[in-house]
Design a protein around this nucleic acid. Structure first.
Length: 271
DNA sequence: CCATGAACCTGGTCGC
DNA sequence: TGCGACCAGGTTCATG
């Protein structure tokens, strides 16, 4: 499901209900949800400890205690939200009781979502790439990254080890806005387009966060409200429709293993 | 180093 | 209405 803006939206929606509170208990309904630790370890290490911070790193939700963290990845269909009673919905992977009486629910239809426990955030930081909304990210850095590799640009932008947070929707949108064909080899892309791409990545993600993310199928947060960025999509899911810039018909094709939308007229492979 | 396809799961949609 | 094929916002692993 969620990419950076949707995860950021979830973090903002649960932060106030967690900061300075404590976990009291956890009920595991899908055992695989705990990826690298056990239910006992959860109870021994994470219960009755004050939550210091709730943040996002790439597509991970970080719940920080002291140095150690509980990291949650929603994958495709994960939802994390509060409820004041124990729900009986079909696809709930875990229920965490909070000391204020609420329950933090992890609901996940496809069961790909996972909880990770790490002694510090370093492990994640070391394997994740640059945050696209950080000051570190700019046209110069992006040029260095793209020109130091010879990879299909779509695959490169989806690779979390390099730039962390983009997913299928926002990659398609940003490449379209920058007039870059998704199959272009990264080191062939002109500097001019990369400068624009860097700006489009930032502005697109920021606009989406403002709209509380994109709802494609069933992304919700809080009381089932959905993100409004869907209204601002130009290319994703628009195959068969005219390109908003040139009116050519939008194409959908598999690139880097993912359904990929682009305008065959605006987005040209440059050499 | 990189591309590809499968695997992990469930449910929705489309064509016949 | 039923059924199979295919698709889905993500990531990881094996293979060539």
């Amino acid at each position: 499901m969620p990419e950076l803006p949707e995860v950021e939206t979830v973090v903002q929606s649960i932060r106030d209900g967690l900061i300075n509170n404590e976990f009291e208990h956890i009920e595991i309904r899908w055992p695989k949800v705990l990826f690298n630790f056990s239910e006992d370890e959860f109870l021994n290490n994470l219960v009755k400890r004050k939550i210091q911070r709730v943040e996002r790193r790439a597509k991970f939700i970080i719940i920080g205690f002291n140095e150690d963290i509980l990291a949650i990845h929603l994958r495709m269909t994960g939802k994390l939200y509060f409820q004041n009673n124990i729900p009986q919905n079909k696809h709930i992977s875990a229920v965490i009781k909070i000391n204020n009486g609420n329950y933090l629910i992890f609901e996940d239809t496809r069961k790909f979502g996972r909880f990770y426990y790490y002694q510090s955030q370093d492990y994640l930081n070391n394997k994740l790439g640059i945050e696209p909304l950080s000051n570190e990210m700019n046209g110069r850095i992006l040029l260095n990254i793209l020109h130091s590799k010879k990879r299909i640009i779509k695959a490169l932008l989806l690779d979390q080890h390099i730039i962390a947070g983009l997913g299928n929707i926002y990659v398609d949108e940003c490449l379209w806005k920058s007039n870059i064909h998704p199959e272009t080899i990264s080191n062939k892309i002109p500097e001019k387009n990369i400068t624009i791409l860097s700006k489009m990545i930032k502005s697109t993600l920021q606009s989406s966060i403002k709209a509380k993310g994109t709802t494609v199928v069933d992304f919700t947060f809080l009381n089932g409200r959905s993100g409004k960025y869907s209204d601002q999509l130009n290319i994703f899911g628009k195959e068969g429709n005219p390109c908003p810039k040139c009116s050519e018909i939008i194409i959908k094709k598999k690139v880097a293993g993912r359904g990929t939308h682009f305008c065959p007229d605006c987005q040209v492979i440059e050499y």
